[in-house]
């Protein structure tokens, strides 16, 4: 996903203390390569491997070098850089742009941004920010909970009892991340992080009760802003010939933003305590992650016993 300078400026106004010096009309320019470049070598005239698709940062080194040049050379050096049509230029350490830099930026219609940060901090922070802004994201139907550090997404058709189950789990001390609509983002480590829609965050709708605000009723411990997705649980009406895994040895998988997650299908019927079942599924998943797979262990025990008795 490509981002524009405007996206960066909006997101980075606070985090990168970014401000616009010039070029409001050209903020729709795209940052094609999601990284930051220090154009030191390019300023000296060496353009092999020059990363012209990246944002360019002018820090102390660049400024000192430019100032060491005669006015004419400075203009030539900067013009050569601008001709590469870089997406934008950020000036670090809150410096004033050199007059030539400003004039050429206007000539080539390349926006100039400025920050109070020092260059190394700016590079670190902006790399993280650009990574976040360009991360694959989506919204999926389902209620997200954090059960003892395990991120559980509850899915199932409307009215099957996802929110009611979530409420029971909150009462047992677990935390709500989002109700019914969950936003997912794949971070740079390939993990899928789940959070709520900004507008409806921490609210739930419970049939017959209405809309509730979870932290007001159950306290701050009942909510979490974000959690990593670990498993997906699907509630479906109980049918006898459902295609569910009765042993737990062969769990199904589901794809979220290109990542595979264990997918447990839980049948719903009167008398089945869904909160308890979700809690057990989550804890059993945690146990599996620690290397204990109860289903496989029992199966091995059974097979071992049979092999001894078969006498071969």
């Amino acid at each position: 996903m490509a981002i524009t300078l405007k996206d960066l400026l909006d997101a980075g106004a606070e985090r990168l203390s970014l401000e616009l010096v010039w070029g409001e009309e050209y903020l729709d320019r795209q940052i094609e390569e999601k990284a930051i470049n220090r154009p030191g070598l390019a300023l000296t005239g060496f353009f092999q491997y020059f990363a012209h698709r990246r944002l360019q940062v002018f820090g102390l080194a660049e400024f000192t070098y430019l100032k060491s040049l005669e006015a004419k050379e400075r203009e030539v050096s900067l013009r050569a850089l601008m001709e590469k049509n870089v997406p934008g230029i950020i000036i670090a350490r809150n410096r004033n742009p050199l007059p030539e830099l400003r004039a050429l930026a206007e000539e080539y219609k390349i926006p100039l941004l400025r920050t109070t940060m020092i260059t190394s901090h700016l590079i670190n922070e902006s790399t993280v920010l650009i990574e976040e802004l360009t991360a694959p994201r989506g919204r999926i139907a389902g209620t997200m909970l954090d059960i003892m550090g395990i991120g559980v997404l509850l899915q199932g058709r409307a009215g099957i009892g996802k929110s009611e189950t979530a409420l029971s789990l909150i009462e047992r001390g677990y935390s709500l991340v989002s109700d019914d609509v969950t936003e997912v983002v794949k971070n740079s480590r390939g993990r899928v992080m789940a959070s709520a829609n900004n507008l409806t965050r921490y609210h739930m709708e419970i049939r017959g009760v209405g809309i509730i605000h979870v932290p007001s009723l159950f306290g701050m411990g009942a909510i979490r802003r974000e959690t990593e997705l670990d498993i997906v649980i699907d509630f479906h009406p109980y049918v006898n010939d459902a295609d569910e895994d009765r042993t737990g040895i062969f769990p199904a998988e589901i794809d979220v933003l290109g990542v595979k997650f264990p997918y447990y299908m839980l049948p719903v019927s009167p008398g089945r305590d869904m909160a308890n079942l979700v809690e057990t599924t989550a804890l059993n998943h945690k146990l599996k992650m620690l290397g204990h797979d109860a289903a496989k262990e029992l199966d091995e025990k059974v097979i071992g016993s049979f092999l001894r008795k078969s006498g071969r």
């Binding site: 139907a141 409307a158 009215g159 019914d180 609509v181 809309i211």
Partner: peptide, 11 residues
């Protein structure tokens, strides 16, 4: 979103 979800509709 599903038109059967109030929380969904608000988003």
């Amino acid at each position: 979103v599903s038109a059967k979800s109030i929380m969904g509709l608000l988003t």
